[in-house]
């Protein structure tokens, strides 16, 4: 059961703009086991979406450069397979659900076409069979199948996100990359959509990378967690390891900034400062400027990964300091 489905090693990605080079992803390691859900947490601009897009190799070709790294999926390095082979994986073995359902659907095609298109590409289905399967997918995500021939503008935001999920799950992928699937939705719909995703995941035995900045969602739906900060994974481990034994100051800060209902507090406790400019990262630890425990060495050298417990890996001098 504990077989690794996806393994990312030392992935580095840069975006080249006219003025500067943006270090979006700086040597991350990640792994997802079969049938499990990994929560990828971090604030805006931490490189979460870039990681997901690089797995599918759909980064904007002209600006984004993958400098180094390996993305192993079922034993194959996705960064070195041909474009043709990659197309067979996209939507079929690895599918992605996008952040904003309002813009993720083609406004001038029926939702039915958009679902059955991916079915037709990856399975040799006739039009009729594809339509039947797409209708099944619609019913599965809770949309009556008679709406097959309707257009995105005839659906509400929550319904559109269901359609996007139906597209993602249509070919029964091994791995689903869900990029903030509920961020654009209001809270009640969020719960519905998440619940539905959890159910479908069980039913179809899909592994999921859930990108989010909602720790509550992570606690409910994920098996393991990776915390991204300025293009690095600063801490990763199982949900229990992270939630019960926080090790990295940034993760600590994330938890501290959550509003607590069981204590009477007037203000939230944000992490002070901003994430460093990804075009000019500090020499030492990327979190040093905001870290309450920062020491001199933190500003000079980058901390290495330390394995606290099997599977619980932290990038901080503080936990390694005991040596």
């Amino acid at each position: 059961m504990s077989e690794e489905l996806l393994e990312i090693k030392d992935l580095r990605i840069e975006y080249h703009t006219d003025e500067s080079v943006i270090h979006a992803v700086n040597g991350i390691d990640l792994s997802v086991k079969k049938g499990q859900t990994l929560g990828l947490v971090g604030e805006t601009g931490a490189g979460k979406t870039t990681i997901a897009k690089s797995i599918l190799r759909i980064l904007p070709g002209l600006q984004a450069k993958i400098l180094s790294g390996e993305i192993r999926f079922e034993g194959k390095d996705l960064l070195s397979v041909s474009e043709r082979e990659m197309r067979k994986i996209r939507g079929n073995k690895i599918a992605m659900i996008f952040q904003d359902p309002m813009t993720a659907l083609n406004p001038i095609e029926t939702i039915g076409f958009q679902i059955s298109e991916t079915l037709k590409i990856h399975n040799k289905l006739t039009k009729k069979e594809a339509r039947k399967k797409a209708c099944e997918m619609l019913e599965l995500v809770g949309i009556p199948s008679y709406r097959y021939d309707e257009y995105p503008h005839q659906f509400s935001g929550g319904m559109k996100q269901r359609v996007v999920i139906a597209i993602g799950l249509a070919c029964n992928p091994e791995l689903l990359l869900a990029d903030e699937p509920t961020t654009a939705l209001d809270v009640t719909i969020q719960a519905q959509v998440l619940e539905m995703m959890a159910e479908l995941k069980e039913k179809l035995d899909t592994s999921v990378i859930l990108i989010t900045h909602d720790l509550g969602v992570v606690a409910n739906f994920c098996d393991s967690v990776a915390v991204a900060y300025a293009g690095e994974i600063v801490e990763r481990g199982t949900v229990e390891q992270i939630f019960d034994h926080v090790a990295h100051p940034y993760t600590e800060g994330l938890f501290a900034s959550l509003p607590r209902l069981d204590r009477r507090e007037r203000r939230l406790k944000p992490i002070k400062g901003l994430m460093p400019d990804p075009a000019a990262l500090p020499e030492g630890c990327s979190f040093c400027d905001r870290c309450p425990y920062a020491e001199e060495r933190c500003f000079k050298t980058k901390p290495a990964d330390v394995e606290l417990e099997p599977g619980h890996i932290v990038k901080c001098f503080r936990v390694a300091g005991g040596e």
Binding site: I58, K88, R90, G91, H122
Partner: peptide, 8 residues
């Protein structure tokens, strides 16, 4: 991007 992610 959605279309590309579908393998089109």
């Amino acid at each position: 991007t959605t279309a590309r992610a579908k393998g089109v």
